[in-house]
Design a protein around this nucleic acid. Structure first.
Lengths: 68, 68
DNA sequence: TGTACATGTAATTTATATTTTACATTAAGT
DNA sequence: ACTTAATGTAAAATATAAATTACATGTACA
């Protein structure tokens, strides 16, 4: 699950730990999501969006051609 | 997890079963997602988007104020 | 009537996201 | 050198999404 969470997080000036705290998940989960190794739930995606002031498509959209 | 999947599905002229087949999930899962009783994975959200020709924010975005 | 389609939903099982605990690496500051 | 913050990652446990099976309702249509 490729995404731009890392970029958005840095733009929001947050460490993985700070983002994790804001969202209420663990730092490990943030790390794995940024690395594209997880398929996060919609709820989590939305919470990340709120934390970094972005919308879903900015961070999580993947064109169908490059999906999987 | 409120969303507009049902609307988008009907606009795309698909039954729950047809959408389920396109996405590769069961009809029950589609029903439960439409009813907001599931918290679908990002992968599933994207596949639904592709099937109904929409983007994530059109179907799954929830403003923070009305989140949960 | 009766049959088929579309949908809602419940119980159980299975797959997998996420947590927890833990250890490693790198870079910055002392 | 030493410490600390930030990050990557692995193994085992837990939580939960999703599948499976099954049954119920309403509607349209013969």
């Amino acid at each position: 699950m490729k995404n731009t969470v890392k970029l958005a997080r840095i733009k929001a000036n947050l460490t993985q730990q700070q983002l994790a705290d804001k969202v209420g998940i663990t730092r490990q989960t943030v790390s794995l999501i940024e690395k594209g190794k997880y398929n996060p739930s919609l709820k989590l995606c939305l919470q990340i969006c709120y934390a970094v002031h972005a919308k879903l498509d900015e961070i999580f959209w993947i064109e169908q051609e490059e999906f999987e």
